[in-house]
């Protein structure tokens, strides 16, 4: 059986309180043999500068992505990774990371593609853990490799591809979680400097702009349930049975929003379009919406 849930009052309000833990809960349960703490960062060297004692590192780029095809690792690769990190199929994995848990949410989402059941986020991530003065160490973590079963990746339920998005336009809500400048396409006007890899700026037609950051508070934690409902339900009108697709640039910020919609608000049909703008903004003959910059 997995670890117990965090009874924290803010967390208890969410639709799936079993998906989030506080630093205090993690400190109290760090020695639970069924828990593995995993750090996933934007900056791939950050773990080496100091991590939560006992935490393993999961590198979004080197560990989770296939190194040739633009895709995630396959079932064998995922099983090898989990095994090497000392994770069994029954392990409770607590993810945390830098930058508002972008990559922690991304890693959690990738584990969910493979059906790993008990995956949780540390609310506030690395930023809050350190702000609270909790211990970090540069000591290497050694875990005994496990037998992790080879389980197929389900690309249909929580993942969307370009073709899915094309047929989704005008049929269901699309949530663009990038910054307003990326949404309007104006960031493509920066002269001489490389942007992160798209030839066209703008957004997918019908997509609404709801920057991921709106779901977060300054200390890195998620907003309380009522504030999230005000944004996504009251303001954006997302309904419980809506089929929602979220996207950003390469799928990390939209993992953050995917987590909010799926686990905090409890929407059962949310997909992350990980191809995101780096695919859409480079694809030939896909429709793009962009406000007239001279208007």
């Amino acid at each position: 059986m997995g670890a117990p849930f965090d009874p924290d009052p803010k967390i208890s309000q969410y639709a799936h309180p079993e998906r989030l833990v506080t630093p205090q809960w993690l400190a109290d349960h760090a020695d639970d043999p069924n828990i593995v703490i995993a750090e996933s960062d934007e900056d791939v060297l950050l773990y080496e500068t100091g991590h939560i004692p006992g935490a393993v590192k999961i590198d979004w780029h080197a560990d989770l992505n296939d190194q040739i095809t633009r895709d995630y690792v396959d079932a064998e690769g995922f099983a090898r990774l989990m095994s090497a990190k000392g994770i069994t199929r029954d392990t409770t994995i607590i993810f945390y990371g830098d930058n508002f848990n972008w990559w922690a949410a991304y890693a959690l989402w990738v584990c969910s593609l493979f059906g790993h059941a008990d995956v949780r986020l540390l609310d506030g991530g690395r930023q809050r853990w350190i702000a609270e003065g909790r211990p970090v160490t540069t000591d290497a973590t050694h875990r005994t490799p496990t037998e992790y079963p080879v389980t197929p990746r389900d690309d249909a339920t929580i993942r969307a591809f370009k073709e899915d998005v094309l047929s989704h336009i005008s049929h269901g809500p699309l949530v663009d979680v990038r910054s307003p400048g990326e949404y309007s396409g104006e960031l493509m006007h920066m002269a001489d400097y490389p942007q992160e890899g798209a030839l066209r700026g703008g957004h997918i037609p019908t997509a609404r702009s709801v920057p991921w950051r709106r779901a977060a508070q300054d200390d890195g934690t998620f907003r309380p349930l009522d504030e999230l409902q005000a944004i996504y339900v009251e303001e954006q009108g997302l309904a419980h049975d809506d089929d929602v697709i979220a996207y950003c640039r390469i799928g990390e910020r939209s993992s953050h929003t995917w987590f909010v919609l799926t686990h905090l608000l409890g929407l059962p049909r949310v997909r992350n379009y990980d191809g995101s703008w780096v695919e859409w903004g480079n694809a030939v003959r896909v429709p793009i919406e962009r406000p007239d910059p001279t208007a």
Binding site: V44, A62, Q67, G197
Partner: peptide
């Protein structure tokens, strides 16, 4: 690029 991903290299 292999360490930090080609995107971040930009």
């Amino acid at each position: 690029g292999e360490l930090v991903s080609p995107l971040r290299l930009r």
